[in-house]
């Protein structure tokens, strides 16, 4: 656990996360034939929210003010446990993939409580939907993780990346492809993307993630938005570096290898963002009671992935 790697990864996490959601917004706009906001617009929004005053509802308790910090810090901590550029992640000793899933659940727990606190119907609606959908998505996510963990005989993310990195033909191993598909659907559900939830919607009765943030303002809102974009970056990195660890710098890598690894990582990130944008642009939002069917389809994919681990062993 060396300090410079930890600080560097923390800075990378903080700066890259808003950029990724900004790029996704910009590409979505491009695909609608409009120029759209600059990719770095998200930074301006965050900076302005930080400077603004806050209006807090009279019904809220201390949980309302505590939740943004838990969401923000738990997202950052998961980011430090996931290998982004350098193979053993800075805090890989402190927790493997199970700890990452647990910390994301901790962030979601307090986000939902923050939604319920101001006693408004929309917050309650958002919390209820968020907890329901994440409960249905959890088994699919866990089974996909198990598939990779079993082949790597470890729940440590760096080990998992090493195991898929070592045997090259394993990249196209059907178990990995199916697990990747399942995790991609879960990624769409967790980050509130189009088939499940519409991030840019204006209709508070259809929101899932945004409904919980309706009461937050000023720096609380900035931490919540930043935490959500860091969580999105963490899930995308989990997807990329576990299933396609090409170019990931090994333990004793030099500066050059780290540079190549950074470039490979950014290229993969943009490719995954492009995939998310295409899905968002060509699909309508599912009816709320159809989303569990989508997530149970992801669960079936993960089970097939598990079966195929020992069929093609």
């Amino acid at each position: 656990m060396n300090l410079p790697a930890l600080v560097l990864q923390l800075l990378l996490l903080l700066l890259l996360a808003p950029l990724v959601s900004g790029v996704i917004k910009n590409w979505k706009a491009k695909l609608q034939n409009r120029r759209g906001p600059r990719p770095w617009q998200v930074y301006f929004d965050l900076a302005k929210f930080l400077r603004k005053d806050m209006v807090i509802s009279e019904h809220t308790s201390w949980v309302f003010g505590f939740a943004p910090y838990v969401v923000f810090l738990s997202a950052l901590l998961t980011g430090l446990m996931v290998p982004m550029v350098h193979l053993p992640a800075p805090l890989s000793l402190f927790g493997g993939v199970l700890a990452v899933v647990g910390l994301l659940a901790l962030g979601r727990f307090f986000l939902a409580l923050g939604g319920l606190d101001p006693a408004s119907a929309f917050g309650g609606m958002g919390s209820s939907r968020e907890m329901t959908l994440s409960a249905i998505a959890e088994p699919a996510l866990m089974l996909a993780i198990f598939t990779v963990a079993i082949t790597a005989k470890s729940t440590d993310l760096s080990q998992m990346a090493l195991s898929t990195q070592s045997a090259t033909w394993k990249l196209l191993n059907p178990a990995h492809v199916l697990a990747f598909a399942a995790m991609f659907v879960v990624l769409l559900a967790e980050t509130g993307r189009i088939p499940v939830d519409n991030p840019a919607t204006h209709l508070e009765l259809t929101m899932i993630h945004e409904a919980m943030l309706l009461e937050y303002s000023g720096r609380h809102l900035a931490f919540m938005e930043w935490g959500a974009s860091v969580k999105q970056l963490v899930l995308m990195t989990l997807l990329l570096n576990v299933f396609f660890p090409i170019g990931l710098a090994g333990p004793g890598a030099g500066a050059a290898a780290l540079g190549i690894s950074l470039l490979a990582y950014l290229a993969k990130l943009l490719a995954l963002s492009a995939a998310v944008v295409v899905v968002e642009t060509t699909n309508a939002k599912l009816r709320l009671f159809r989303v569990p069917d989508l997530l149970s389809a992801a669960f079936v994919l993960a089970t097939l992935a598990l079966l195929s681990t020992f069929l093609f062993h």
Partner: peptide
């Protein structure tokens, strides 16, 4: 950023 930002209590 937020040294001068104030907080106000208002209705939900």
């Amino acid at each position: 950023f937020a040294r001068r930002a104030g907080t106000r209590i208002g209705p939900t």
